[in-house]
């Protein structure tokens, strides 16, 4: 993907603003891959300027009431509709208190003016490897709900993102919401990223720890180091084993920096990214275990 000389204009298209989900799905069915969904527009409009996409039909879903849903229910979890912006997530008390990794990722994503428009669903649908939305969602085991005229299906975010700019979505389908399971009391989560000069991460990491006596549940999800976010399964095993937590954290951080496939690109070498993985893992886990 090139962010070379930007065009100042957009390609020609017809704008649609459906008032119901059914109307939007009918438009999608009719125009197929000629159509693109517009929510916040910070991705789609920028991509259209670069001519990375040139849809003949743009379907604005901001007029559909059910996609504005942002709701938490104890035991069931959190539902985030397709047009909910980062700023709305930032000011939602439940996210700040219970879903710390998501809250911290939202606060670190881009800048506050972009966050007034950008949506979390848009963020994962773009499937750009260095964005901050996917790692916390994968750490919580979140799923996306996808609707078309004749069916509804749910896919884990981890599988929905297939690779750079590649998602599990057919023409005629739309992502209506993200569902995040409730987090048990005592579970902790957090997010960190390393970036220089731009908001794009060189490495980002979401961690989820539920260290109950009976069942230990640990998830470490890394973004920006590979074509799609990945879990460090061996490091997770180390953290779930018995022993002194500080020693386990150091072993897990070293393991994570070794076990994953890591890319090398113009932003950072593979070695530097591995170093960052080690440091970020150590810092975040220490903070989660020792803090509050």
């Amino acid at each position: 993907m090139s962010f070379g000389s930007p065009y100042f204009t957009l390609p020609d298209f017809t704008y649609h603003k459906p008032k119901t989900l059914r109307e939007a799905l009918e438009l999608l069915e009719k125009y197929g891959d000629e159509a693109k969904i517009l929510a916040g527009g910070v991705g789609l409009i920028a991509f259209m300027k670069e001519r990375l996409v040139s849809p003949s039909h743009v379907i604005d879903i901001k007029g559909i009431p059910e996609l504005k849903k942002l709701e938490y229910r104890k035991g069931e979890g959190l539902v985030i509709g397709a047009t909910v912006t980062f700023s709305e997530l930032e000011s939602y008390q439940v996210i700040r208190e219970k879903y710390r990794a998501l809250y911290q990722a939202v606060k670190l994503a881009s800048d506050s003016i972009i966050r007034n428009r950008a949506t979390l669903v848009g963020n994962i649908c773009e499937a750009i490897p260095w964005v901050d939305g996917p790692p916390p969602l994968i750490a919580y085991g979140a799923e996306v709900e996808i609707k078309s005229l004749d069916k509804v299906r749910r896919v884990p975010v981890a599988e929905f993102i297939k690779g750079p700019v590649e998602i599990d979505l057919e023409p005629g389908e739309i992502v209506t919401s993200i569902h995040i399971p409730d987090v048990p009391s005592g579970a902790r989560s957090g997010f960190v990223k390393f970036n220089v000069g731009s908001e794009f991460a060189l490495v980002n990491l979401a961690a989820y720890l539920s260290l109950n006596e009976e069942k230990k549940d640990v998830r470490l999800v890394y973004g920006a180091i590979s074509p799609k976010p990945v879990r460090a399964l061996e490091a997770e095993k180390i953290l779930s084993s018995e022993g002194d937590m500080r020693t386990l954290i150091i072993s897990a951080a070293v393991k994570a920096s070794e076990e994953l496939e890591v890319i090398s690109d113009v932003l950072a070498s593979e070695d530097f990214r591995r170093h960052l993985i080690k440091i970020l893992t150590m810092n975040l886990l220490t903070e989660l275990v020792e803090g509050g």
């Binding site: 930007p6 957009l10 527009g41 920028a46 604005d60 800048d111 506050s112 003016i113 972009i114 428009r117």
Partner: peptide, 25 residues
């Protein structure tokens, strides 16, 4: 392209970057 923020306007009381908003919206 939404990076510099110099085209910021208040849209219904909220700062947004007007180079990333369609007029029809």
């Amino acid at each position: 392209r939404g990076e510099c923020g110099l085209c910021t306007v208040l849209l219904n009381g909220e700062p947004v970057k007007s180079c990333l908003v369609l007029a029809v919206e």
